[in-house]
Computed example of a mutant assay.
Amino acid sequence: MSEQLLPGYIIRRGSLLERSLLLKFMQRTYQDLFPNDDFSHLEQTVKQYFSSDTPLWWVEEEGEQGEMRETRRISNAPCPIPNAQFPTPNSPIACLWVGNAIDQVHGNRHAHIFILYVVPEHRRRGIGTALMQYVENWAIQRGDRQIGLQVFQSNKPALNLYNQLGYQTQSIWMVKFLSAEK
């Protein structure tokens, strides 16, 4: 089921069958920020954390009324209807994947944004803001009292968005790179 996110864009709930598409979006997110790095390890992250408890949403461009959608075979699994074709959604232009975390101060479960990504051609159109409002409403409906996320310090557009939406730094994640050599 999909609903309008913004004029011209719909949002739909992703399925567990879209693991490979989620992985592609995650890799694209990191490649945008770190173009010279290898992100093959993200497959393990998706494998470990993507489940029915970690909802995924896709944003797609809204089609014309009555427009025929492309069809494709869903899988190679046996099907009672030979060569059955099913409607496919438009190619997603944004995704939002949310997990659960525990507030280390009060011990309450809360939503944690794993990824929010909008393809470059659709940025600066309000999609990121609309997705953040969408997930905030979702979190409120399920009883969460806060939302957490992690953002790279070098990702200034994302930092600006989150600051404008009222997100505040609660902690600073620090790393020290260690040498394995002795």
Rank of each mutant, 00 (worst) to 15 (best):
V151D: 13
Q141V: 00
R13V: 07
I11G: 03
I147P: 04
E61A: 05
Q168N: 12
L116G: 00
H41C: 04
V118I: 15
H122K: 12
F114L: 00
A111D: 15
H122S: 06
L23K: 06
N36E: 15
I115E: 14
V119A: 03
V118C: 01
Q27P: 04
R28F: 03
W97C: 01
A158W: 03
Q153L: 06
Q104G: 09
I172M: 10
E67F: 07
R72G: 07
Q153N: 08
V59P: 14
V59S: 10
E121S: 03
R109I: 15
Q85C: 01
T129C: 11
H110E: 13
P82L: 10
F152L: 15
Q65H: 14
P92D: 11
E64K: 15
R12I: 05
Y134L: 14
D53C: 01
L23N: 02
N83W: 01
E70A: 03
L23R: 06
Q48E: 13
A158M: 09
Q44I: 10
Q164S: 04
P35C: 00
P7F: 01
R123D: 11
N36Y: 10
G107Q: 13
L16V: 01
S91C: 03
W58E: 10
I102W: 13
D32P: 00
Q4N: 04
T129R: 10
Q27I: 02
L21D: 11
R73I: 01
E18L: 09
Q31Y: 03
L6S: 06
Y117A: 03
A139W: 05
F86E: 15
W57N: 03
Y167I: 07
N155P: 15
H122A: 03
P87I: 00
T88Q: 10
C95L: 14
I10Q: 12
F34R: 06
L161N: 04
F177R: 15
R124G: 03
I172N: 10
L56M: 10
E43S: 04
L165A: 04
R142P: 00
G143K: 13
E64Q: 15
M68P: 00
N160I: 05
T54F: 01
F177N: 12
K47A: 03
R13N: 07
L17R: 06
I74E: 04
P92A: 05
I115M: 12
V98N: 09
S154T: 14
V98G: 02
I11A: 02
L161D: 05
A130H: 09
Q164Y: 04
D53S: 07
P7M: 05
Y30Q: 04
V46Y: 06
P78S: 01
G8P: 14
